[in-house]
Write a protein that binds this DNA or RNA. Structure first.
Length: 271
DNA sequence: CTTTTGACCTGACAGC
DNA sequence: TGCTGTCAGGTCAAAA
């Protein structure tokens, strides 16, 4: 489900509710997520104040005095702020109960998400330390991508979806950015010019910024922290449009599989 | 080192 | 009304 815009939307929605609040109680209803939710987490954070909410790639980070809670939404996760008494529904696996009668509640049908405790410096955490740059920051530019791609034979689409290359670009936005840049998703990463990488970086930033503005993309079940969907789906040019006409030239949008994921592109506009 | 494949899960939907 | 197979916003770990 959530790519960077959806995680960003979620983060922005929960931040004001959490910042400065004291964690009264951790409730784990289903510990078996991507990794087990540990008893250590509860022991460490109960009674602590949430100092700050931030995001690194698709990880949401809640800072407390001597460590961080790392939350990943996987494919189907969502976070909401609920009243403490609110009835739990199917797939609600985790609550962070605050001292003001509200809870941060994680729902995740597929359980590919994660809730982890980290006492390490974040830049040394095994899941974070090798992550690529943030796509919306200045250090993510055409020169960086072009240099990183040198000698790489993977397709450009799999390349930009690799979080060690750049974080936050998932299947929807990879397809969209490649369309906007006019690049065929099957092209080898190492065989794309610096000029085209500069263009691609622009379209990645553009599509992510627009999606954030629209509150993300809801395909079937993404909801923000208030339970509302995102509206970027209406702006998608190629994703989920196989067999439909290209909005630029009318050619039929093609569907192929790359690395077990669907890719959509216009064979005429993308070379 | 890079690349590919399998694994983890539930739910929705198509086709028989 | 089943049942089976396929697909879905991710990404780690192991194999090649």
């Amino acid at each position: 489900m959530p790519e960077l815009p959806e995680v960003e939307t979620t983060c922005a929605g929960i931040a004001a509710h959490l910042t400065g609040k004291r964690i009264q109680r951790v409730r784990v209803y289903q510990a078996r997520l991507r990794w087990p939710v540990t008893a250590e987490l509860a022991a460490k954070v109960e009674g602590q104040h949430i100092r700050q909410i931030s995001r690194r790639g698709k990880y949401i980070l809640l800072a407390v005095a001597d460590g961080h809670i790392l939350i990943h939404l996987g494919m189907s996760g969502s976070l909401r702020i609920v009243r403490a008494g609110e009835e739990r529904e199917k797939h609600d696996h985790f609550d962070l109960c605050l001292d003001n009668g509200t809870c941060l509640r994680l729902r995740d049908p597929r359980r590919f998400g994660a809730v982890l405790w980290s006492e390490q410096t974040l830049s040394e955490h095994p899941l974070l330390k090798d992550l690529g740059p943030e796509p919306l920051e200045r250090n993510f530019d055409g020169g960086y991508l072009h240099a990183k791609a040198l000698g790489r034979k993977v397709s450009i689409k799999e390349f930009i979806m690799n979080s060690h290359v750049v974080v936050g670009v998932g299947n929807i936005y990879a397809n969209e950015a490649l369309f906007l840049a006019g690049i065929n998703p099957t092209r080898q990463a190492g065989r794309v010019s610096g000029e085209r990488y500069a263009q691609l970086v622009k379209t990645i930033k553009q599509v992510l910024r627009q999606a954030i503005k629209q509150g993300g993309t809801t395909l079937r079940d993404f909801v923000n922290s208030e339970g509302k969907p995102g509206y970027f789906k209406q702006k998608l040019k190629v994703y989920d449009r196989a067999g439909e006409p290209c909005l630029q030239c009318g050619t039929t949008i093609k569907l192929i599989r790359q690395g077990q994921r669907s890719s959509f592109y216009c064979p005429h506009c993308q070379k």
